[in-house]
Simulated assay, not measured.
Amino acid sequence: MTERTFTTLSDGGHFFEGPRWHDGRWWVSDFYAGVVATVEADGTRRTVVEVEGQPSGLGWLPDGDLLVVSMKGHRVLRVGADGASSVHADLTSLDVPGPLNDMVVAPTGHAYVGCFGFDLMTGADPAPAPLYRVDPDGTASLAAEGLHFPNGAVITDDGATLVVGETLGCRYTAFALGPDGALTDRRVWAQMAPTPPLTTMGETLGALGVAPDGCGLDADGHIWAADAVGSRVVRIAPGGEVVDEVAAPEGLGAFACMLGGEDGRTLLTCLAPDFFEHARTAAPEAVLATIEVDVPRAGLP
């Protein structure tokens, strides 16, 4: 495995998540600052929109409007070119178990939104969780059930396959993605470690070998993922072999990553000391850092 060292792009955030490369710049959510921001190559960070209910996953509709997950609001917001935001989809009627989380948006405008499945911040016992689908017109529905903390997801270049990480399952699960947005042919795409039983929060976290968080797809069909319990980013081959890894700087964990940059070979990683809301809200210690990799990005997001 190649020795690489992270380079800081921007710091002073509370908890960065959902990194994306779009229109020649980086975009990120800061959970506990309640904002979505862009980040230029020189590290300059500018707020795009303030989000009530904690922002997470980001994506774009075919017309260019930005979609943003409001985690605690159980909504997907739509932000126009003028910066005005509105509710694109309201998922409250679906009885969402715990906060919403990351999202990937297909070329058709169908969005797929994960959720925790339980209240992580109060230490509740983990439970299986659904993945939701939001159609281009804002209609929300259940896309899949029984996932172990559905989190970062990717869509292949041909638009035919969606792969979603299960953070508490140590695996990636794939679906065939239909032109109408339906998910079928569910299968394990990669199993990196045994899936632990969902018991108590402490027992489940302690049994995780790899906890895939935010991620991005490369042109070889591998996934770069943040390992939320391993303080590293890992490159995962179909099947589950970890073929490359880079350790986070000492004292920091890795919670999301994405490929981008002009040649698609820059891996931006969201780093922080931990993910706990009370600690991260109080201390702006989150960092965005980059490494250069060999294989460029592919697919979405």
Rank of each mutant, 00 (worst) to 15 (best):
234 V>M: 10
247 A>P: 00
240 G>L: 09
266 T>Q: 13
262 E>F: 01
260 G>F: 03
245 E>G: 02
233 V>M: 10
263 D>W: 06
242 V>Y: 02
244 D>C: 07
260 G>H: 00
268 L>Q: 06
238 P>D: 14
255 F>R: 13
238 P>H: 08
254 A>E: 09
253 G>L: 07
262 E>G: 11
239 G>E: 12
241 E>S: 14
269 T>V: 07
258 M>V: 15
236 I>E: 05
247 A>T: 15
241 E>C: 08
246 V>P: 01
269 T>C: 06
251 G>P: 06
257 C>H: 07
250 E>V: 14
271 L>P: 05
256 A>W: 00
259 L>K: 06
254 A>Q: 05
246 V>E: 08
260 G>C: 04
240 G>H: 07
256 A>I: 06
235 R>Y: 04
237 A>N: 03
255 F>M: 11
245 E>L: 11
253 G>A: 05
237 A>Y: 02
266 T>D: 15
246 V>F: 03
273 P>F: 01
272 A>H: 10
250 E>H: 13
267 L>M: 10
235 R>Q: 12
267 L>S: 11
235 R>D: 11
253 G>H: 08
262 E>Q: 13
272 A>Y: 01
263 D>N: 07
255 F>W: 15
247 A>D: 13
242 V>C: 07
260 G>D: 10
254 A>P: 00
267 L>A: 11
242 V>R: 00
269 T>Y: 00
257 C>Y: 08
260 G>Q: 03
249 P>H: 11
240 G>T: 06
235 R>V: 03
252 L>I: 07
234 V>I: 15
266 T>H: 05
266 T>G: 02
252 L>W: 06
265 R>T: 15
247 A>V: 14
263 D>A: 07
256 A>Y: 00
266 T>L: 13
249 P>N: 10
248 A>V: 04
233 V>P: 06
271 L>Y: 02
254 A>F: 02
266 T>M: 12
238 P>Y: 12
258 M>D: 14
247 A>G: 11
272 A>V: 09
270 C>P: 13
269 T>S: 11
237 A>W: 04
259 L>V: 08
254 A>R: 01
253 G>C: 12
255 F>N: 10
265 R>D: 05
234 V>F: 06
250 E>Q: 13
256 A>R: 02
249 P>G: 12
268 L>V: 12
260 G>K: 00
271 L>R: 01
264 G>W: 14
262 E>M: 06
254 A>Y: 01
257 C>G: 13
243 V>N: 03
264 G>H: 11
259 L>A: 09
237 A>C: 06
249 P>F: 06
262 E>D: 15
244 D>H: 05
261 G>H: 09
244 D>L: 02
